[in-house]
Amino acid sequence: MIDTVELLFFLEVLIGGLLAGVMYSLVALGFVLIYKASRVFNFAQGAMVFFAVLSFVGFMELGLPFWAAFLVTVALMILVGMTTERLVLRQLVNQSDQTLLMATIGLAFVFEGMGQLIWGVEVRRLDLGIPDVPLEWVLDSTGMFISALDISAGVVAAVMVTVLAILFSKTKIGLGLRAVADGHAAAMSIGIPLKSIWMIVWATAGVVALVAGMMWGARNGVQFALVWLALKAWPVLIIGGFTSVPGVIVAGLMVGAIEKVAEVYIGPAFGGGIEGWAPYMMAVVFLMFRPEGLFGERMIRRV
């Protein structure tokens, strides 16, 4: 017979992990968008998250109301995304993997530096009006600590994924994007405007970065450490498959849950801190059995 209190504690840890995982998924979504359309592994996604939310807080501090600041930042991120595509990525079409990776790492440095140059380096608080306190009715009925902010992040992520899913499957842009993902040359030959698709993708990734950044910023404060998120999103991508939106959602949940459960139940045996590498180890083990990820496309190589 398992103790009810223990079970509830486990559930609490699990739900906390799942909701943290939602946030990983949000960051990973931006990666998938760009990778799908252009086969570019955008290392700068984490830096974009940081830059977006820093700008948002910056605009709020300038006296803009919440919604105005949000809209201005959305516009800014669309602009930044498009400019990046135009000035950097388009120059690097057909370059090798490592060149592209290097260029996006350089891009990450630029975003991090620019953000700090424009808005300063101090840690800021971001108040979304959603308190990061346990929901009382859950606490009363079950005794579990589940934060309202985490729940909101879950809802926001669900909305984002739905919107993106509709964008991909129902609109003309989405159709074009899927064609581009299947093959650049083929898509171009039937008249799909490759360049504008790429610009749209980068702009969308910028907006996704802003939403992810707002969620993370409300939880951890708006600070440089947000950049590290990008690294946590990598194992999520590996497990989910680089090209699958549902994949990264499921993988984000998995990584979040396993990481927290492992930290709470196995961590103390090693003195804690296993959160830092557990997701990567998970990804490595996962790669051994399913190299293409949960829902990724199986790669077939011919000589």
């Binding site: 950097v88 120059q91 690097l92 370059q95 060149t99 592209l100 290097m102 260029a103 790492i105 350089g106 891009l107 990450a108 440095f109 630029v110 975003f111 991090e112 530096g113 620019m114 700090q116 140059l117 300063g120 380096v121």
Partner: peptide, 20 residues
């Protein structure tokens, strides 16, 4: 801190230019 941020930007731009 401003100088170090500026250095970071220039470093990043240099890498991007190199790759291009």
């Amino acid at each position: 801190t401003i100088i170090s941020a500026l250095e970071q930007v220039i470093f990043g731009v240099a890498i991007i230019l190199f790759m291009i």
